[in-house]
Design a protein around this nucleic acid. Sequence first.
DNA 1: AAGTTTCTACTTTTT
DNA 2: GTAGAAACTT
Length: 750
Amino acid sequence: MTNILADLNPAQREAVTTVHGPVLVLAGPGSGKTRVLTQRVAYLVRECDVQPYRVMAVTFTNKAASEMRTRIERLLGGQLRGLTIGTFHATCARILRREAAEAGINPGYVIYDGDDQLRALRQVLKDLNLDEKRYRPRAMRAFISRAKCDLLTPQAVEPKTHPEEVARRVYERYQALLEANDALDFGDLLLRMVLLFEKESGVLEKYQSRYLFLMVDEFQDTNTAQYRLVKMLAGERRNLCVVADEDQSIYRFRGADYRNIRRFREDFPEHKLLLLERNYRSTQTILDAANAIIAVSPWRTPKRLHTDKGAGPLLTVFEAYNEGEEASYVVNEIARLTAQGRTTLGGCAVMYRTNAQSRALEDAFIFGNMPYKLVGATRFYARREIRDALAYLRLIHNPHDSVSLGRIINVPRRGIGARTTAALAQWANRMGVSQHEALLMLREEHGKKGREGNEDTGGAACAGRQAASAIPFGTRARKQLLIFLESLEGWREARADLTVAQILDQVLEETAYEGWIRDGTEQGEDRWANLMELRTVAADYDPLPQETALTTFLEEVALVSEVDDLPEAADASTLLTLHSAKGLEFDVVFIVGMEEGILPHSRSFDDPEQMEEERRLCYVGITRARERLYLLHAFRRSRYGADDLNAPSRFLVDIPRRLVQGKGKSQGLAAPRRTATWRPALKVSPAPSPTPRSEPQLAIGQRVRHALFGEGTVIESKLTKDDEEVKVAFPGKGIKKLLASFAKLQKLGD
DNA sequence: AAGTTTCTACTTTTT
DNA sequence: GTAGAAACTT
């Protein structure tokens, strides 16, 4: 058995072994805090005879949680039954499911994400006769989410302005809709948990006495609801260990409040404070740059990060002419560094402020025939086809979910248009039942009518009997609705005998979804492939007991995050936002778009607090680098259509020149364009030298082979200054723009 | 109701 | 420069 405490520095060791009472670990980037947390759990279990099920560890992402679990299991050599490791949301979702009766929730509830929230809100705005232009669903969502983070129910909100009063009413109505749908949104998971603990002291005590030891990672990113939750759970015992780095607090916009650190210090005055300042990741040069950026920030506990690693290479600051040149510079540098054996493709990452910036980079990677993996962009679970499929599954699981119903009732097209869906929603509303129940009533009426042999057209005959159930549909609409209901009821019955994957198959089959989505375009193929990918994920749930498989699948799918489904294996560079970079590390990091208006983002200009957050975001990016750091900005950048000229980021100015290669010629205000700057990189690049001018150009119609895309046909070709740019159609892969010198296209006969 | 075209907002970050 | 909604037509 390995000694759990070996290889820990004194501060780390103390953080691991101080298991009783509150502990605050202030941990700089790369200081081994994940290590501390895993060793601490292992220490509790092995050295202190604590049963795993008495420990709860909360992490920020599911990925962090499963990594931690794996590492602990490796340390202890065995499965840890009953250990609770997960995100706040996942943990609350599970407890609420278990305590559904006490919480007054249907245990089969579904979880609404941001997109579902918007759909629900649009319905609410329609019901309240509010103009979507004046009361933006997104603004309403932000208002509601903020309220929930602050533990405010609609009744508790105190509107200060008229628009806030309207938002409060929307919140109230929205909440009623969710309740009717047996749905909880992300905010509800936390809010309802807190409310349950406050209302039912017995339930709280049950969990307090189960969880003797609590740990929270990324504590600076907790919101008020989350703070309240851990404080309640810690109870009298106060065995609560939180790990925080206020310099990496980057989620203020979704309610995170790094002041929870201060709150912790006040609420747990007897806490032990531990500082992890030794960095095991980066060179001193990178740490100095990071310190220079963050030291400017007020109100922070100063930390002095240090490392045993040497100075390492200087930083590179580079001004490109535009985003295209910025991207090709990155690709060239990665090619050069990997060819020199200084790193691997997987050791390189490119980080940016907004997802939209990934496009130019992707183009450059494809141009250069360099493998890359993209984190985020259009999240897998945000894709339309995936959401459609999940809506079907959710509806089968919980027919009250009218948001899902509204999503797929006419997808694929089945003759139920906007008019009919609006009428159905209104009708159900008026009768105070869910849309599914309304459909069941419609069927009943229909059957009755048939038996009575009543041959009226339209719903007039029923109107006299029951005003509330006057059926607002024409014959055709009614027929289509009943056909839809039959399908749904069929799946719901079949559900008991089928696995999740089989239910999905059946839905796709019976709705002819494949034909609907596979329309012969490249996009259609992608979408179908995504669905098959979803099917693979669903098949993972086959071994679970039949009754819980669908519930578990839907819950886990609702709570996965961006970085969670990062493919590990492939040797490819990573493209990701600065936000999703947190917690990761790479040999070489490129931060692109270091410009005023991009990083810092223009939305932060008028709010000093938000500007500080931009600074921390920059700090997070820098501290991801182990060896080499490149900071890039472009003289000119096109942002949705128009061209902008952006000054270099103010954060660049804070970096001491001695840390920067080439004496920072490009620092200061926007310099005139110097395209020559990046050409040398192209020359030393290991990529094959550009096709000699004499070589016959690739003609339109020429068949070619590409290493990544296979065989294709040239459909467009134009000569640029010193190369040839071609568009090639690859069957099944779509049309790609390629640079002849990089793409290594092999000409094929015929 | 479905298929077109036109318009518009979008691009901050996500459990 | 695009995706999704709204406004049109068939």
